[in-house]
Design a protein around this nucleic acid. Structure first.
Lengths: 239, 239
DNA sequence: CGGGACGTTGACGTTAATCAACTACCGTGG
DNA sequence: CCACGGTAGTTGATTAACGTCAACGTCCCG
C-alpha cells in the first residue's frame, strides 16, 4: 500500500467547495453519489505510485497533476496533465499504470476504487458519466499519440500551446501551469527545444510570451498552419 | 452515411464460426447478447471512415484491421492494429475518430452502436466486458504513447516486434501481418528506417528474418535491453 | 549578497529523414 | 516461356532537425 501512504501523507483535509471544477462533469456526478474524502495536495506531492496493486480514484478539484511513467533507463514520460474536474485512476486493470504528482497545490477528492465500481453498478448516471470520462481520456490520448507520432519538435510545442489555450485559457492570457521540464517530458523533446520553440514563436509574432508561465496567442491560425503545414515523419534521436 | 456505404459494400455475409478470436473476451460476451451481422472483409477494404456521425461497432473475428487518421498535410498515422477478438468503435463521442481498413481479409461482426449501448445498459456482464475492453485499449495506447514519446527509431521497431510477438506470435515464428508502410506509419518513422532496423537486428543476431512477413526472435533479452538501454529524447525531424 | 532552481542561448554532433537507385516479387499478356 | 510493368522492399549518400554539452542569465529565498 505505498499509495495509501502517499495519500495519508497529504496535508490533512480541508472542507469547502473549490474553484475551477466544472459542474456537471463526470467528477461532479460521481461526487453526488459518493462524497469521497477531501484532501489538500501541495506542490510536488505524490498522489499515487506506478505499480500499486489497488489504486484509488482521485478527482482533481483544483490545481494540476501530472501522470507519468519512468522508463528502465530513468527517463520520465508524462502521459497526461489532469486539471480541475479530471479524474485519475479509471480503467484500472489490477495495478496503477503510472505515478501521479501535484504540479501545483490544490484540492482533491479520493474515492476507493471498489466504491466507484459499486456506484457504476448501481447508478445509471454515474455509469454513463464514467464511460464518458473513459471515452474522453481515450480521445485525449489519441491527440497525444498523433502529436508524438507525426509532429516535429516545434510543431509539438505549438500543438501543446493550443491545447493549453483550450484547457486552461482565460480571456486573453493563457497559462503554462507547469515547468519547462514537464512540458519537455510530455512532448518527448528537451527543455532546450521547448525554450527555443517558444521564443521563436514569440519572435515570429505567433504568440506573446508574457512571463515564464503565461502567454497570449496572437495568431492562432498561423500557429495551426505551422502544425499542419510542415509535419515531420519520424522521431529524432537523442541518447 | 459513408460508413454505411462502406459496410454495405462488403462482400456479403458468410456464416460459420471463425478461427482466431479468443473465447471469453469482450467481443465474445457481446456476441452472446447481440448476434450482430457477419461480414467478410477483403484486403484493403474500408470498414469505417473518420468523421462519420454515427459509427457502428465492429468486432474482428479474423484478419487484421488498421485504424488511422490523416493529417492536414496528407500524412497517415495508424493509431492501432486490431486483430481477432478486437473491437472497433467503442468510446464513441459523437463521431468516429478514425478510419478503418482491412490489412488482410477476414470476417467481422457489425453491431449498431445504439444496440451496443442498450446491451451495456441491460446486461451486467456485457457492461463489465466493455469497460474492460475500454481499459485495455487505454493501456495499449499508453504503451504506444511511451514508445512514440521516449524511444528512438530502432527502439520503436524493436518494441513493436516484441508486441507483434506477444499478440500474433506462433511457437517459433512470429508474423508481421502488415506491409512496411503500415509499420512505418504506426511507429512514426519512414519505411527505410524500418527496413534498416529489421536488417540490423538480423545482422546482430537478435532476430532472424525469415521472409517479408515472418521473423523469429532469437535474443529476446537483448532486444529488450536495446529498447531500455538507449532511449532517446525527442523526435527527429523530417519534412 | 550568496546560492540554487529554472530558464535561455550558442556551438557541435548524431540520428534519422530525404533523395535516389536498385532488387525481388508478383500477375498479365505476348 | 519470357518480357513487361507495377508494387514492395532494400541499400547508399546526403542533409537537416534536434539532442547534447556547456556557459550564461534570471529569479527567488534565505
Amino acid at each position: 500500500m505505498r499509495q495509501a501512504q502517499a495519500l495519508n501523507a497529504m496535508s490533512s483535509e480541508s472542507y469547502g467547495q473549490q474553484q475551477g471544477a466544472p459542474s456537471g462533469g463526470p467528477l461532479d456526478r460521481l461526487r453526488r453519489v459518493l462524497p469521497g474524502t477531501l484532501r489538500e495536495m501541495t506542490q510536488g506531492q505524490t498522489l499515487s505510485l506506478e505499480g500499486e496493486p489497488n489504486g484509488r480514484v482521485v478527482g482533481i478539484l483544483s490545481g494540476l497533476a501530472r501522470c507519468f511513467r519512468l522508463t528502465a533507463n530513468g527517463r520520465r514520460h508524462i502521459c497526461r496533465f489532469v486539471g480541475a474536474g479530471g479524474v485519475i485512476g479509471l480503467g484500472l486493470l489490477g495495478v496503477q499504470r503510472h505515478s501521479t504528482e501535484a504540479v501545483s497545490a490544490g484540492q482533491v477528492v479520493v474515492f476507493r476504487t471498489a466504491a466507484v465500481e459499486a456506484a457504476i453498478e448501481h447508478d445509471t448516471r454515474v455509469r454513463s458519466a464514467i464511460m464518458r470520462a473513459l471515452a474522453e481520456e481515450l480521445a485525449e490520448r489519441e491527440r497525444v499519440q498523433l502529436r508524438l507520432g507525426r509532429l516535429g519538435a516545434e510543431q509539438r510545442v505549438a500543438d501543446f500551446l493550443l491545447e493549453l489555450s483550450a484547457r486552461f485559457g482565460a480571456a486573453g492570457a493563457n497559462q503554462i501551469p507547469m515547468p519547462r521540464a514537464d512540458m519537455a517530458d510530455h512532448l518527448g523533446v528537451t527543455i532546450e527545444t521547448v525554450s527555443r520553440a517558444l521564443h521563436r514563436f514569440d519572435r515570429l509574432g505567433l504568440i506573446e510570451l508574457i512571463d515564464l508561465h503565461q502567454f497570449r496567442v496572437l495568431r492562432r491560425r498561423a500557429l495551426q498552419q505551422l502544425i499542419e503545414g510542415d509535419e515531420v515523419n519520424g522521431p529524432p534521436h537523442g541518447v
